[in-house]
Nucleic acid binder design. Structure first.
Lengths: 395, 395
DNA sequence: GGGAGTTATGTTAGCGATCCCAGCGTGGGT
DNA sequence: ACCCACGCTGGGATCGCTAACATAACTCCC
C-alpha cells in the first residue's frame, strides 16, 4: 500500500499510448511508464478521419479512465472493475497488477458513470433547515460522521422554510441526484404534512419529526427530559416551576412543554401559562424581565440554554440571585452552558447518537429494500450544575 | 494513437432492435477477435423477431427517462434534451409539447447521466472541518446559501484532522464526484502545506487559509479586528491589555494575536506573553482564573467569545467586576454574546459575506476556465457593549 | 474419467443524457 | 434557377462504468 505518494494527480502521467496489441506491462508501482513524447501538446482538435479520431485523441487532459488502466495492466476493463471493487474473483497477481496500474496513472473511479451503470450512488440526502441552532447543526454533524463511516456521501439541501412545497422541492432535487435514501430533519410541525406525499419508494427517516406519520423516525425524548428537569426543581423545594417555552411550531418545544406540564400535574401544582420565546437569548431575556418582577417565581425552566442565558441576565439585572432566589434550568447542554453565570443545570441530548441511529435506520431500509416505520427514542439526561439548589448528586 | 479501434469498419447495420429477451447469439468461437479491446467483433445478424418488446419491457418501476418523454411527445430524445435545456433552437410548439409530456410523466433529469455526458456536474465541493465552532459552521452555511442561489449543489466532506493526507483524500473524494470546483475551509496552518499539491486544473478557493499560497483566498481581517479591539481598550484608559489567545495552529488565532500585539506596540505598551486557550469556554475560564489574581490586569482581550465567557465567569468568582474593575472583549459576535453578563464587547465577522465571496471567486474561476489568485479580505467590525468602559457609541 | 462445480477472465450491451453532424424544409441573394 | 444560410429536427456515437453472459482452464467426486 505504500505509494501513497499518488497525489501528483493525473494530468501528466496519463498516457499509455502505444495502441496496437502490445501493452506496457508495468508491474511495479514505482515504475515509470515510458512516455513517448506527447505530453499535453498532443492531439487537440478532433480530426475528422475515423482512423485518427479514436478516443485517445481527445485526451488533452482527460483524467484516466478504466480502459486506460486496463490497457496498462494488460487486462480487460471488466477485470479492472472487479479488481477495484473487491468483491469478485480475481487472482491476486492480476489484482496487484491492476492496482499498480491504477496507482501509477492516478486513476480514480468516475462516480457519475458508476451511478449511471448501477443505478445507485452511495449518496444519501439530508434535508436540513436554515438554522445555525445548536441542535440541528449537531444532528447534521452526527449524521455526516456516521455516513462517512458507512462509506456514503451526504448531499445536503437546506431549506429556509418548511412548507409542503419546499420540502417536496428539496426531495426532488435529491431524487435527481439518485440518492439512495433521505434523512429529513424536521423539527417543525409544519414539516409533518410536507412529509406525507414523499415518493413511497424512497427510504426515509425523519429526525425530530412528527411522531405519528408512517415513517421511520428518530426523536429525542424531549418530554422525559423536561419532566426530569421540572421534577428536579420541585424536589428541591420549589412550589412551582415557571416555563419559557419555545416556538409552538417546533416539535421540541411541544415536547418540552408537555413534559413540564405533566411534571407539574403529577404533584398537583398549578400550571401557570408559560411565556413564549423563540429560542434566542433575546427572547429569554425578555421573558426573564417579566418573571424577575414576580416574587412567586423561584424556579424557571427555559426550553433551551440560549433562552436560559437571557433569563439569567434578566434576573441578574433585577438583583435576583441564582440559585439562591431563583433556580434556572435550560435544555440542550450547549458547550457554553457550563460557563454561564452560574453554570447552568440543563438537559443533555446525544446528537451523535441521533445521527448514528438515523443513519442506521436508513441503511436498514436500503439494505432490506423495504420501508420501515421503526421509531427510536433517544434518552436525554439531566445535568445538574449550579443554577439550581439542592444536592449536587450529578456533576 | 489508433488503438481502441472503434472506427474501422463497423457492421453494416447497427441493429438496434433488441430482440426481447433473447440474446443475439454472438459469433461462434471461430471468429478471431484480433486483439483484446473492441473493434471488429462486429456483425451479428439482426434480430429476426418483429415484435419489438423494446426497452419498456424492463420497466418494473423505473422512473421515466428522456426517451419516454420523447415517445409521448412524439419527438426524438435529442429534441427533448434541447427543449428542456432552454438554450437550443426548438419551436415553441414543440417545446410546449415536450414540457407537457415531461410534466405528465413526472420526468426528472438524471444527474448522473448528464454529468457523464457533459463532464460537469453543477456540484461544488467543500472541504470543511470537524467542528461545531461558530465560525466554520457559519461559513459553511454562507457558502451553502450562495451556492443554491447560483444553482449549484454542494458536496461536503468534513475532516477530523487537517494533515496533508486527509486533505488530499478529501479532495480526491470530491474529484471522484466530478465537482467543478472546491472551497477549502482551512483554518489551520497545517492545511497550508496540504493545499500545495492540489490538482492544478481544479478551481479552488481557500477560506481562512494561508495568506500566501498561490490560491484564491477569502479571509477575514482578523488582525484589523484585533487591533481595533485592543486599541479601543487602550483608548478607554487602560495601560495595558492582556490576551487569551487561540490555538497556535489556527490562522485566526495568529491574526488576532498579531493584531493585538501591534496595537500594543503602537502605543509602546509592554507585550505580556498571552495565555493560551483552545477556543473553549473552559480554557477561557482557566485563563481567567490566572488573570483574575493579577491586580495589574484591567483589560482582557480573548480571542473568541467562548473564551471570553469563561473569563467572565472566572472574574466573577474572584469578585472582580466587569467592566468596573476589568474590561473584557471577545471576538466573533456569537448570538449569545449580547446576553452574557455583562453583554460582551466583541468583533463581528460577516460570515455570510465570506460565503458569498468565496463562491463568487470560485465561479469566476469556473467560468473563466483559469485559476485565479485573487484574494479578498473581509472587514470585521467592533461591537461595543457593556463589558468595557467608555463611551457607548455603538449599541 | 466425464459431467458438475469453481475460478479467472473476456465480450457484449446497456445505464440516460448530450455532442456532432446530417437532413429537411424555407427564404433570400445572385 | 441555383446555392447557401438558417431554423428545426433526427440519427448515431459516446461519456465511463458494470451486469449478465460466455468461455476457458482447473478441481472434484463418485
Amino acid at each position: 500500500m505504500g505509494c501513497t505518494g499518488t497525489a501528483e494527480s493525473w494530468p501528466g502521467v496519463a498516457d499509455y499510448v502505444k495502441g496496437g496489441d502490445q501493452v506496457a506491462r508495468a508491474s511495479d508501482p514505482g515504475v515509470e511508464t515510458p512516455r513517448p513524447g506527447y505530453g499535453a501538446a498532443a492531439g487537440r482538435d478532433t480530426a475528422s478521419f475515423p482512423e485518427v479520431t479514436s478516443r485517445s485523441s481527445r485526451s488533452a487532459r482527460r483524467p484516466p479512465a478504466m480502459t486506460d488502466v486496463a490497457k496498462l495492466a494488460g487486462v480487460s476493463p471488466q477485470t479492472v472493475s472487479r479488481a477495484l471493487s473487491q468483491h469478485a474473483s480475481v487472482s491476486p497477481m492480476t489484482r496487484a497488477r491492476v492496482l499498480a496500474a491504477a496507482d501509477g496513472l492516478g486513476y480514480r473511479l468516475n462516480t457519475a458513470a458508476r451511478t449511471l451503470a448501477t443505478g445507485h450512488s452511495r449518496t444519501l440526502g439530508v434535508v436540513a433547515f436554515n438554522s445555525t441552532f445548536f441542535g440541528p447543526v449537531s444532528t447534521l454533524h452526527g449524521i455526516e460522521q456516521a455516513a462517512r463511516v458507512a462509506g456514503y456521501f451526504i448531499s445536503v439541501v437546506s431549506l429556509r422554510s418548511i412548507d409542503r412545497h419546499s420540502v417536496a422541492d428539496a426531495v426532488g432535487r435529491l431524487n435527481d441526484q439518485v440518492v439512495e435514501g433521505i434523512v429529513v430533519i424536521a423539527p417543525l410541525t409544519s414539516a409533518a404534512e410536507a412529509l406525507e406525499n414523499l415518493p413511497t419508494d424512497m427510504p426515509v427517516v425523519v429526525v425530530e419529526g412528527d411522531p405519528n406519520a408512517g415513517l421511520a423516525a428518530v426523536t429525542v425524548d424531549q418530554a422525559a427530559g423536561a419532566r426530569a428537569a421540572t421534577s428536579y426543581l420541585l424536589s428541591t423545594g420549589h412550589q412551582n416551576v415557571f416555563h419559557v417555552k419555545g416556538p409552538p411550531e417546533w416539535q421540541e418545544a411541544q415536547g418540552r412543554l408537555s413534559g413540564w406540564r405533566s411534571a407539574l400535574e403529577e404533584v398537583g401544582a398549578e400550571v401557570v401559562p408559560p411565556l413564549s420565546g423563540d429560542w434566542t437569548a433575546r427572547s429569554g431575556y425578555q421573558a426573564g424581565q417579566v418573571l424577575a418582577r414576580v416574587p412567586e417565581v423561584t424556579a424557571i425552566f427555559a426550553a433551551n440554554d440560549q433562552m436560559a442565558l437571557g433569563v439569567l441576565l434578566a434576573l441578574h439585572e433585577h438583583n435576583r440571585r441564582v440559585p439562591e432566589d431563583v433556580s434556572v434550568v435550560g435544555f440542550d447542554n450547549i458547550p457554553d452552558s457550563a460557563y454561564f453565570m452560574p453554570p447552568l443545570t440543563t438537559v443533555r441530548q446525544d446528537f451523535d447518537q441521533v445521527g448514528r441511529t438515523s443513519l442506521r435506520l436508513l441503511l436498514d431500509q436500503i439494505n432490506s429494500g423495504a420501508r420501515s416505520v421503526e421509531r427510536v427514542m433517544i434518552q436525554s439526561e439531566l445535568v445538574v450544575r449550579q443554577s439550581t439548589l439542592g444536592t449536587p448528586e450529578a456533576s
